[in-house]
Amino acid sequence: MKVKRIAALAAAFTLIRGAAALGDGIPGHKGTALDGFELGTKSLAKRVINYSEIFKDAGRQYGIDPNILAAICMQESSGINYSYREDGSAYPAWGIMQIEYTHEKAFAEFGRKRTGVAWTLSDRLDPEKAVPYAAYLLSESLYRYDGDYVKMIQAYNFGDVVLNRIIAAAGDNWLNERINAAKYADNWKYNKYGDALYAERVLSYYSSALDNVSAAVEVDGKAVKFEDQYPIIEDGRTLIPIRALSEALGAEVEWDGTLRCVYINKDGTSIELTIGKSDAYIDGMAYELDVAADIINDRTMVPLRFAAEALGCEVEWDGDARTVVIEK
């Protein structure tokens, strides 16, 4: 299934505006109506723009459009890195990405995997830690919801558990059922908790100002899941973590750390690539690459099209969906 592209979201909002207005007759609820929300019509605060490089780095690693990260930051905090209310009581969510305290264990483990040291809840106030964690959460949701960006964004506010219950109960009508989110939650005392129009509000801040170098990959119609480094686009070519490629295509991989060479073998075909060099070999025959293999975030990245086609696969690029489609 193709990843739903951001450009299609405006049309999706148009289709659902004919439904009943959200929030009518519910005092204090943030959602009032679907009308008035358009893709990218609101501006980002300068404070948010100041974090652009962090958004781009996190998006590059976890396959999330950095413009979405910036838009979520704007909706969550307007770029204000706060942790306390004016009366001194602690917020349940901290930092520019407003990470909830309920993420304590997951946040600590995420930090341990990235840095070797478990992160504490106070580390949510460090944008260089909070933004990558938010990007990771979004990447997990994007995979879970089969590339549906609206569900991915709404889950950042509701959480996967509540959103899954809404989808299970309402099916295709889940967008309108968001207004009743509290009845699907275990600990929301009032219906005003959560934002029924969160996805629309976030996307009203969406722009294409930040370069998006992320890409998704499908093999035989199934999305490929990545752990800690997603494919990136460099010089118009997609680089993919070699381990993910080998698992998706059923190939074997060997790494020679001394020579900095990658060897890929499948069904009698052998590919040899060297980190940083533009020449590669298929069964001993030399080929010149448009972009060399590289090491990014401690992961060996190889040119996807070259490797996949060398192994007998058909490769297509869906530019609208920013997805590489592979048929074995």
Rank of each mutant, 00 (worst) to 15 (best):
R305P: 08
E272I: 07
V253L: 14
D298C: 08
R144W: 02
I80D: 00
Y281V: 05
I275M: 15
V3F: 13
P231T: 11
R124L: 07
N164R: 07
Y193C: 05
A21D: 14
E128R: 08
A244W: 03
N191T: 08
F55H: 05
A155E: 11
S139Y: 04
I166F: 05
A20D: 10
E247K: 10
D172E: 14
L311W: 04
I271D: 06
L44Q: 06
Y190A: 11
I295W: 04
I264Y: 03
A33E: 14
K328D: 11
A196W: 05
M1C: 11
A106C: 06
E327R: 14
F226E: 11
Y91W: 11
A293C: 04
M1S: 11
L245K: 11
L44W: 14
A8I: 05
I271P: 06
E53P: 08
D57W: 04
T102D: 01
A209L: 09
A135H: 01
L245P: 00
Y62C: 03
F226R: 00
A292H: 13
T300V: 15
V162G: 01
E177N: 02
P231D: 08
M285C: 11
L121Q: 15
Q229V: 06
I99S: 05
L69N: 04
L39E: 02
E200K: 02
V131Y: 04
Y91R: 13
R305N: 10
N157T: 02
T120P: 01
Y190V: 08
R17L: 01
A155L: 13
I275D: 00
Y156F: 12
Y206D: 07
E272F: 13
K56P: 03
L304I: 01
L121W: 10
A118E: 14
L203E: 00
R17D: 00
D195M: 05
F158H: 13
R114V: 12
A108K: 02
Y205V: 06
D320R: 01
I295K: 12
I282H: 09
T300Q: 07
T274E: 15
I68P: 00
S214R: 06
M74C: 09
D298Y: 05
L239S: 01
S122L: 10
T120A: 15
G116S: 04
Y62V: 01
G95A: 07
I240D: 02
L175W: 08
M1F: 13
L304G: 02
Y206T: 02
D320M: 06
T274M: 12
Q229E: 08
D211N: 14
P127N: 07
S278Q: 12
Y143P: 07
T300W: 01
T238C: 09
W317M: 10
A58P: 03
V219H: 03
A223R: 14
A209P: 03
N81P: 03
S78N: 14
A90H: 10
V202H: 02
V324P: 03
A108D: 07
P241F: 02
V253G: 02
S246D: 08
D186S: 13
L239T: 10
Y190S: 14
A308L: 06
L22Y: 00
I232D: 03
